[in-house]
């Protein structure tokens, strides 16, 4: 079992183009349509956040990207149809859909041997080095590890794979704040390179905001926002309106309004900061505030980008 000698990349090189291209992506379970013909493009070297309520279609979208489920419409990942060529694609794509999915009957050492034997781009030495400093021992049975240890182990496995795209679906679900922070810090410090792309979904959106380059919001099977973080910061503004300027602020058509601790907070889309500043305190909304705002906005045609 070689670690470095047999590193292979068999998916056609499409480094110059986007990693993922989806057009009119639809998915139906029985009579219920889960994805309503979504379009998106994910270039290389980005960190994408995919955020949405439970049942919004995030996991179905990820499953379509990973070739885990057939869909209508068109989707190409690294230039190939992921459902038709999942096994081939997985040489260059790594994912964690559930940290509890590691085979529990194995010990850690056997897991590494096994993955090294069936994955040409996996490095046992790197996986072992990634476990240094953690409480996970090579001789430990996976079934006996705590949830935090499982997350660390699973992260070590995917980070030891020379992948172009890493997809993480709620990777820190059920972990405490210490593990979550360590998890994301390790991901950014030890894994991300300019030619790698990371796609991540989580409900703890504030915890990943610092690492994102792009954000996608999903609602009811549709993308309601797909934009670089820099654009989001420029485009959306939050106003804590002064009591005597409520009506003037409302006249500027906020996309969201709520009262927090006695203050009226409004979120505006595409408005000049200069117009808002006389009306109260203006700031950039956090991702979680923006998410709440856009989730409650009346649906409009097309994707905000």
């Amino acid at each position: 079992m070689t670690d470095s000698a047999s590193k292979t990349t068999t998916v056609p090189a499409s480094a110059a183009g986007p990693l993922v291209v989806a057009r009119g992506l639809k998915k139906r379970f029985g009579s219920r349509e889960i994805l309503h013909g979504i379009d998106f493009t994910i270039p290389a070297g980005r960190v994408y956040g995919l955020v949405g309520h439970n049942g919004a279609g995030k996991t179905t979208t990820l499953n379509a990207i990973l070739g885990l489920t057939p869909c209508q419409g068109s989707i190409k990942v690294l230039g190939v149809d992921p459902f038709a060529q999942r096994a081939r694609l997985m040489r260059d794509v790594a994912f964690i859909s559930d940290v509890a999915s590691l085979p529990r009957f194995l010990v850690v050492r056997d897991l590494f041997r096994l993955v090294a034997g069936i994955h040409p781009n996996f490095s046992t030495a790197r996986a072992e080095s990634l476990l240094e400093g953690t409480e996970v021992r090579l001789g430990a049975k996976i079934g006996n590890l705590s949830k935090g240890m499982l997350a660390q182990l699973h992260l070590a496995v995917v980070m030891a794979i020379e992948a172009k795209l890493l997809v993480l679906d709620e990777p820190t679900l059920g972990l405490d704040i210490t593990f979550r922070k360590r998890f994301y810090r390790r991901l950014i410090e030890d894994y991300m390179t300019p030619d790698r792309t990371l796609l991540i979904t989580t409900h703890q959106v504030d915890e990943i905001e610092f690492m994102l380059t792009d954000i996608m919001f999903m609602r009811d099977g549709s993308l309601i926002l797909d934009a670089p973080m820099a654009d989001v910061g420029r485009r959306y503004l939050q106003l804590v309106a002064s009591p005597d300027h409520f009506q003037a602020a409302r006249a500027l058509a906020p996309v969201f309004e709520e009262t927090r601790f006695g203050q009226t907070v409004m979120v505006f889309d595409g408005l000049d900061r200069e117009k808002l500043e006389p009306l109260g305190t203006v700031s950039t909304p956090t991702l979680s505030d923006l998410f709440v705002a856009l989730m409650q906005r009346e649906p409009t045609a097309g994707v905000a980008a």
Partner: peptide
């Protein structure tokens, strides 16, 4: 049953194999 399906599907091995 062991909840490891997604792990095996993340490996470059087909379901037939």
């Amino acid at each position: 049953r062991n909840n490891s399906m997604l792990f095996w599907k993340s490996m470059p091995q087909s379901d037939f194999r």
